[in-house]
Design a protein around this nucleic acid. Sequence first.
DNA 1: AATCTATACAACCGCAGTGAA
DNA 2: CTTCACTGCGGTTGTATAGAT
Length: 372
Amino acid sequence: MELKARPTPPTFAKKSLIDCPRTEVDPWSKPLESSYGDGMEGLGNKTGHQCCRKQKVKRGLWSPEEDEKLIKYITIHGHGSWSSVPNLAGLERCGKSCRLRWINYLRPDLKRGSITAKEERIIVDIHRILGNRWAQIAKHLPGRTDNEVKNFWNSCIKKKLIAQGLDPNTHNLLSSNYKHNNNNNAWKLSYHSHQQPTSTFTVNSQISDISSMVMKAPPLPFPMIPLAPDTNPPLSHEFSSSLTYEYQNPKTQAFLESTASQSSIGSALIFSSTSHPSEFGMLDESCMWAGGYEPTQSIIPEKKQPEQQVEIEKISSELIGAGQQMDASFETSNFDFDFNFVESTLLPCGMYYNQSPIDQLAWDSWALQEKK
DNA sequence: AATCTATACAACCGCAGTGAA
DNA sequence: CTTCACTGCGGTTGTATAGAT
């Protein structure tokens, strides 16, 4: 069997935190040989994996030799039962460790390299709805693992949001609950927050250029972030349940209905509602908010039939062509697909966007960039 | 040059869910 | 119905490395 050659490690320099986008880490880089787990630390270790307690197992970083053994075995035999993999592959590791190594590092379909700005947007947008459900978020990022998403969130995005005065847990404004420290230009939580959420796009537009903003200027002053009109109920976790959010506008609904009747889309769930955007994910597995990114084939499951894919592309292009702007994600009985449009009148998460000339401008320039 | 500190990310831990015995 | 092994997930820790002092 032929194993994939390792790419030549690129030279890289660690960037400053502000630049955040991940450093150009060589995906195949390995620490010094001497640092690999060289003992049988798992033996008799009360805190080790259950499966490790019965046998001698190595722990710590994997050596290239171990990687090769695992790759070779799984490529030929598949993993089957993970607990039997170590023995069959000739590894002194526990099954759990093998599984983790394969899933997070050795799988051939993993995407190597830094997380892109686009992927970052997706992570932020979905996290806003789902919270720390890393595995769910990772499903929207082909080739990325939950561990990777989680690490990126903790080491990068979280800091960016805080630097903008946004609570990374709720994505709401931090206002008085976070105190800005002029010395280090950072926001620190001082007590429980209770604020208005920002619009989807507001967050995205800031994130896309946060490095320069933070570097060259103090953190964004709150007034730059559009606030909810007085006529709206308070948007917070003590949120009024009287307000109902609807995912879909009549125009798109009609369009999809007509399309569904003559295509493979079938029983598309095209309407749902909730009292708060944060509940979108809980409403129904088949309909969730996941706005903020472009229609993309990358999130379309591979199992999709070619004709379905063509259909999706057609719908996406027609919607875009019609100049609609709306964020939405649908799942039909057969498959799911996502659109990126923003129509402020439809989606409260994005409803402030049109009311802010700053955001409108940011949107336009972002959209322009994305087109290029 | 040596040491310290911060960062990124790989790996581990413990828990929950599931299914087979 | 209970037990147990297995798997998947989220939180946390460990470690190599870059940059600062």
